[in-house]
């Protein structure tokens, strides 16, 4: 996985609460057997109406947000299905960081597995950042220092954020979880040996 350290870019304000994974990537795009290429379908049904016309009022269709790498969203972002197609489409679109008051559990975890930094800030701060983002300001995000900086009215602003140290480290190092866990193969084997003694009915049965 790619390492995440510093990020500098424009941010898209998305003022909708409870954005679910069906909105992020509608189901007609889940029939792929690949991880890549989903970016163009991100928020598809918010971008296009039923006749396939662009909805101009939607932020992702507006020129000023082209190439943005940050998404500033409403609370409970990413609820619904566990589909990892949601973070895949977000990452493939070029968004590397999301800022929101809260996330659904599975989506939040999925972000870290795909090199996306999900930042949690209080609702008021998120609202303020959404306003700021409308003026096409450049945001700088520093994961190591855990802060967001930007210039507004010629003034340098800084907002710090909290993050679980383990998750932070994973992003900074771009770690492959599976490789790390496989180093513990002996412990896993020992666990299985003990479990088979304690609860033998878990071992053996298989459907035919």
């Amino acid at each position: 996985m790619e390492k995440f350290n510093k990020l500098s870019g424009h941010a898209i304000p998305l003022r909708i609460t409870n954005v679910d994974t069906d909105m992020i990537i509608p189901k007609q795009f889940l029939k792929t057997i690949k991880r890549t290429g989903l970016g163009e379908f991100l928020f598809f049904e918010l971008k296009f109406d039923q006749d396939g016309n662009k909805i101009d009022s939607f932020a992702l269709n507006q020129d000023q947000y082209k190439g943005a790498s940050i998404l500033i969203a409403g609370k409970n972002f990413g609820c619904g299905s566990s589909r990892e197609h949601a973070p895949w489409s977000i990452a493939d679109y070029g968004i590397k960081c999301i800022i929101a008051p809260s996330y659904a559990d599975i989506f939040y975890n999925n972000c870290f597995k795909n090199g996306i930094l999900p930042i949690v800030l209080d609702e008021e701060t998120v609202g303020r950042l959404q306003d700021t983002a409308e003026n096409t300001l450049n945001f700088k995000i520093d994961l190591e220092k855990q802060n967001i900086t930007y210039v507004e009215n010629n003034e340098q602003k800084e907002i710090s954020f909290d993050i679980d140290p383990a998750k932070k480290n994973c992003l900074l190092e771009g770690l492959d979880d599976i490789g790390l866990t496989l180093n513990k193969a002996v412990s896993i084997g020992n666990f299985e040996g003990n479990q088979e003694k304690e609860t033998p009915w878990l071992y053996g049965n298989k459907l035919t």
Partner: peptide, 15 residues
């Protein structure tokens, strides 16, 4: 429920 990265993790490590 888990995401696909975790499906892969479970398949490979049963953890």
């Amino acid at each position: 429920g888990i995401g696909t990265s975790e499906v892969e993790h479970t398949l490979a490590t049963q953890t």
